[in-house]
Design a protein around this nucleic acid. Structure first.
Length: 204
DNA sequence: CCCTGATTCGC
DNA sequence: GCGAATCAGG
C-alpha cells in the first residue's frame, strides 16, 4: 500500500482526532503503526496540537470511545449573585455502565452484599433485570477471576466492566480479555448488551 | 504484558 | 519517501 492522497487525508484526520497510530494503521490497513508514525513525522504533524507553544498542555482528554451518557436533566436555574462559594465540580471520569446488582441465591462466603453506594448521582440505570440468570452467574464467577485493573490500565482489549464503588477502595475494572470489537469480556458483554427485547412496539 | 510515540537508518 | 527495528516510556 502506498500513501495516496486519500490515505494521507484520513491519516491527518484521524491523527487530528487524537487517534493512536495503531488505530489509524488498523483503519487504513496495509500499514503498520510504525508506518503511520513515520508518515506523521514526515508530514510534520507530529505534535497533534496545532497550538501548544511554550507551556504545553498535553492531555486534552480526548474521549475517543467512552460511552457518552445523555445529559437530560439540566442544572437548576441559579442565576444568583456572586460565586462566593466556589463550587468545585470535579468531573468524575466514570464511564461506568450499569452496575449489575446480582446475587445468585447461593451460599456466598464473604458478606459481600450488594455494593450500592448511598451516593446520589447515580445515572439512569437502564436495567439490572431481565438478564439471563446464566449470564449473571457467569459474571459472578468471572468477577472472581477478574484482573482488577485500574482506570489507567484499561486498553482496547481489557474488559472495562467496573466493579464496586468508585469512591472506595473496593473498585476496579474487570480487565479480562475483551471480546472482539467489544469493550467487555465475554461474560460482561452478556449482561451489558441486551437485545431490546420485550419491547415490542405497540401496533400502530 | 499490554500499549504509546520518537528516532534511526538501510532500502 | 518509506517503514522495520529499536528506543523510551506508561
Amino acid at each position: 500500500m502506498s500513501w495516496t492522497d486519500e490515505r494521507v487525508e484520513q491519516l491527518k484526520k484521524m491523527w487530528g482526532e487524537g487517534q493512536s497510530a495503531s488505530q489509524i494503521a488498523k483503519e487504513l490497513g496495509g500499514v503498520t503503526r510504525n508506518a503511520v508514525i513515520g508518515k506523521v513525522h514526515r508530514l510534520g504533524l507530529s505534535n497533534r496540537v496545532g497550538a501548544a507553544p511554550a507551556g504545553d498542555t498535553p492531555p486534552p482528554a480526548a474521549p475517543p470511545e467512552v460511552e457518552a451518557r445523555p445529559k437530560p436533566a439540566a442544572a437548576a436555574p441559579k442565576p444568583e449573585a456572586k460565586p462566593k462559594a466556589p463550587v468545585i465540580k470535579t468531573e468524575s471520569a466514570r464511564p461506568v455502565p450499569p452496575e449489575p446488582v446480582l446475587e445468585t441465591k447461593s451460599a456466598q462466603p464473604p458478606a459481600r452484599r450488594a455494593i450500592i453506594p448511598a451516593g446520589q448521582p447515580l445515572p439512569p440505570q437502564p436495567s439490572a433485570n431481565e438478564i439471563s440468570p446464566e449470564a449473571l452467574a457467569k459474571v459472578n464467577e468471572v468477577e472472581k477471576k477478574a484482573k482488577k485493573i485500574s482506570l489507567m490500565e484499561l486498553t482496547e482489549r481489557t474488559c472495562k466492566w467496573p466493579v464496586g464503588d468508585p469512591a472506595t477502595e473496593h473498585f476496579w475494572f474487570c480487565g479480562l480479555p475483551v471480546q472482539q470489537g467489544k469493550p467487555y469480556c465475554e461474560a460482561h458483554v452478556g449482561v451489558a448488551f441486551q437485545p431490546m427485547s420485550a419491547r415490542r412496539d405497540r401496533r400502530r
